[in-house]
């Protein structure tokens, strides 16, 4: 690995990520929003709990939908970041091999307030990521106490799968257009990666851990 993750995180944290006159944050070739984590959590977990009350089938659908939100977020946000000029300025000069793209984007994520991500293991077929202080588990514990539903970090779960799909199922290094056709190619079939949260702080673990594997 040739990416200096700390330097990347510090550089991204130093970028001018402030809202413009429209309240949007133009950065990484995207429009970011300064989003309130407790609000996203409140909406997600109200949905999850309502589905739980409806029965197992509804609960499974809710979980899948919340993870799908993570896939979409990863595709547009992480994919957009990896195609941006900020990426070219901050991360690309450190990249020597394909895996460096992963270490680079995880270092960028660590400047976004999602918790502290670390790649524990990475191959072209599997990735394990640990997250300390994930905002989803923090929010769940604060509002609902310990989870009786297992892991609750759905956006991160989708995000981890999305990263592998961008890098080892598709090929973000070839600068593809991030359009609906490419999304369907990466996520619309069983040929890509799926992720699961294997332990979650909201369910009693010290930290959250995720694994993404080819399906």
């Amino acid at each position: 690995m040739s990416v200096d993750g700390r330097a990347v995180t510090e550089a991204v944290a130093g970028l001018p990520l402030a809202g413009n006159e429209e309240g949007l944050i133009p950065a990484f070739g995207l429009y970011l929003t300064r989003h309130y984590a407790p609000y996203y959590n409140a909406v997600s977990y109200a949905y999850l709990h309502h589905a739980r009350d409806e029965g197992d089938a509804s609960l499974a659908k809710a979980r899948a939908a919340l993870v799908e939100a993570g896939h979409i977020c990863a595709f547009n946000t992480f994919g957009g970041i990896m195609l941006s000029q900020e990426w070219e300025a901050v991360v690309a000069p450190m990249i020597e091999e394909r895996a460096d793209w992963m270490y680079g984007i995880v270092a960028v994520v660590n400047a976004l307030g999602w918790g502290r991500w670390s790649v524990e293991d990475l191959s072209q077929d599997e990735m394990r990521i640990a997250v300390a202080d994930s905002y989803e588990s923090t929010g769940y514990l604060a509002e609902h106490g310990e989870s009786e539903l297992g892991g609750v970090c759905f956006l991160a779960t989708g995000g981890v799968a999305g990263l592998m799909n961008l890098l080892y199922h598709g090929d973000i290094t070839n600068r593809p257009a991030l359009n609906p056709t490419y999304y369907a190619e990466l996520f619309g079939n069983d040929a890509g990666f799926a992720a699961e949260e294997i332990v979650c702080r909201a369910a009693g673990a010290d930290r959250c851990e995720f694994v993404a594997r080819r399906q």
């Binding site: 550089a11 130093g14 970028l15 900020e86 300025a89 901050v90 690309a92 000069p93």
Partner: peptide, 11 residues
């Protein structure tokens, strides 16, 4: 205009 010279490449 903002030029961030401290980055690996000046953005």
């Amino acid at each position: 205009l903002m030029v961030l010279d401290s980055l690996p490449k000046p953005f």
